[in-house]
C-alpha cells in the first residue's frame, strides 16, 4: 500500500505503540492502578492497529495487531519480571 521505506517506518511505529501499551499495563499490574495508564494503553493499541492497517490493510492489520500484542505481552511479562528480579 505504501512504499517500502514508509512501510518499514509504519511497522516500527506500530510495534513501538504496542510496547508502550503493554509497558503501561505492566506498570498498572505492578503499582497502584491508574485510569490514565488505561487510557494511554487503549490509545496506543488503537494507534498500533491503525499503523498496521496502513501497511497491511484493515483485516490483515487487525490480525497482525492482535497476534503481535500477544507476542509482546508474553515477552514483556517474562522479561520485565525476570530482569527486575
Amino acid at each position: 500500500m505504501l512504499d517500502n521505506m514508509t512501510d518499514s517506518m509504519t511497522i516500527v511505529a506500530a510495534i513501538i505503540m504496542q510496547c508502550v501499551a503493554i509497558w503501561v499495563l505492566v506498570k498498572n499490574s505492578q503499582a497502584q492502578r491508574s485510569k490514565l495508564r488505561w487510557v494511554i494503553a487503549i490509545i496506543a493499541t488503537v494507534l498500533s492497529f491503525l499503523f498496521f492497517s496502513l501497511t497491511y490493510g484493515i483485516l490483515a492489520g487487525a490480525v497482525i495487531a492482535i497476534s503481535m500484542l500477544s507476542l509482546l505481552g508474553i515477552a514483556f511479562s517474562l522479561l520485565s519480571n525476570s530482569l527486575s528480579a
Binding site: S29, Q30, S70, S77, N81
Partner: peptide
C-alpha cells in the same frame, strides 16, 4: 493478574505455573 505475573525468583513450580499461565492467557486467541 495472570497476564503479568511471572515470579522468577520463587520456587521452580511457582515460576513454571506463572510461565504456563502467561503463555496460556496471552496466547489464548492465537
Amino acid at each position: 493478574r495472570n497476564l503479568f505475573t511471572f515470579r522468577w525468583k520463587k520456587s521452580f513450580d511457582v515460576s513454571l505455573a506463572d510461565f504456563h499461565k502467561v503463555l496460556g492467557v496471552w496466547g489464548l486467541l492465537f
